[in-house]
Amino acid sequence: MKKLLLVGAVALFGVLQAQKTNFGANAGMLTGFAKVKTPMGDDSESNTGFYAGFFAEITAGNMVKIQPAVNYANIDGGSALQIPIMVKYYVDPKFNLQAGPQFTFDLDDNPFPDYYNSLNFGLALGTAYEFTQKLFVEARYSFQLNNHLKDAPSGYSVKANYLNLGLGYKF
């Protein structure tokens, strides 16, 4: 896993050097929507917290930018790292639509490592409006694609989706 992260970091650094890149910070409200499915029925719950992080914005064309980010996320004392890699398509110079993968690493101690995935991945969709060249507002919703439960029997699943609403600033 460490080698994979190192290779990814080196590749990202190479891409950042080759393109026009902006860096910045973002923060805001985070709402998590958990859904548990069992053969006996379904249950869901939502809780609200916050996120804060840093991002790079890489120009990939006249109307396209790529924005990888690392966000610290906290809901009800539980913490995680969100790593979205959003492709931003500008429908207007100030307004963009976004889509891309989002990886979520649980930072809390996992009491059941044989049964519970600490790394989860999903599909994120979002939008942003840029008030100025530096200040913007963002909204993103991510759908978890894998199961939090490892090797779960048929009919059992735990998934969490997230809504990020916040502000960002480009340095």
Results as ranks from 00 to 15, higher is better:
Met1Gln: 11
Met1Gly: 12
Met1Pro: 01
Lys2Ile: 07
Lys3Ala: 15
Lys3Thr: 13
Leu6His: 03
Leu6Ile: 14
Gly8Asn: 09
Ala9Val: 13
Gly14Pro: 01
Val15Gln: 05
Leu16Asp: 04
Leu16Val: 04
Ala18Pro: 00
Thr21Ile: 07
Asn26Gly: 07
Asn26Ile: 04
Gly28Gln: 10
Thr31Tyr: 02
Phe33His: 07
Lys35Leu: 04
Lys35Tyr: 02
Val36Tyr: 01
Val36Cys: 02
Val36Met: 02
Lys37Trp: 00
Thr38Gln: 05
Thr38Phe: 02
Pro39Met: 08
Pro39Gly: 07
Pro39Phe: 08
Ser44Gln: 14
Ser46Gly: 11
Asn47Cys: 12
Gly49Arg: 01
Phe50Lys: 01
Glu57Phe: 04
Ala60Trp: 06
Asn62Asp: 14
Met63Glu: 13
Met63Ala: 14
Met63Arg: 09
Met63Pro: 00
Val64Asn: 03
Val64Gly: 04
Lys65His: 11
Ile66Gln: 03
Ile66Tyr: 11
Gln67Trp: 15
Pro68Ile: 10
Pro68Asn: 10
Val70Pro: 02
Val70Gly: 11
Val70Phe: 11
Asn71Phe: 11
Asn71Gln: 12
Tyr72Arg: 12
Ala73Pro: 01
Asn74Val: 11
Gly77Gln: 10
Ser79Lys: 08
Ala80Gly: 08
Gln82Asn: 06
Pro84His: 00
Pro84Thr: 01
Ile85Gly: 01
Ile85Trp: 00
Val87Arg: 03
Tyr89Glu: 05
Val91Trp: 03
Pro93Gln: 06
Pro93Asn: 12
Phe95Trp: 10
Phe95Thr: 05
Gln98Leu: 00
Ala99Lys: 00
Gly100Thr: 08
Gly100Met: 02
Pro101Met: 03
Pro101His: 01
Pro101Phe: 03
Gln102Lys: 04
Gln102Ile: 00
Thr104Cys: 05
Phe105Lys: 06
Phe105Gln: 14
Asp106Met: 06
Asp108Pro: 01
Asp108Glu: 12
Asp109Gln: 13
Asn110Trp: 10
Tyr115Phe: 08
Tyr115Lys: 07
Tyr116Leu: 13
Asn117Ser: 14
Ser118Gln: 12
Ser118Tyr: 03
Asn120Glu: 08
Phe121Ser: 06
Phe121Val: 04
Phe121Lys: 06
Gly122Ala: 09
Thr127Ala: 15
Ala128Ser: 15
Tyr129Trp: 15
Glu130Leu: 14
Phe131His: 13
Tyr141His: 03
Asn146His: 05
Asn147Gln: 13
Asp151Ile: 13
Ala152Ile: 07
Pro153Gln: 15
Pro153Phe: 11
Pro153Gly: 11
Ser154Gly: 12
Gly155Tyr: 09
Tyr156Phe: 12
Val158Ser: 04
Tyr162His: 03
Asn164Ile: 00
Asn164Thr: 08
Leu165His: 05
Gly166Cys: 03
Leu167Ser: 13
Tyr169Pro: 09
Lys170Ala: 12
Lys170Glu: 13
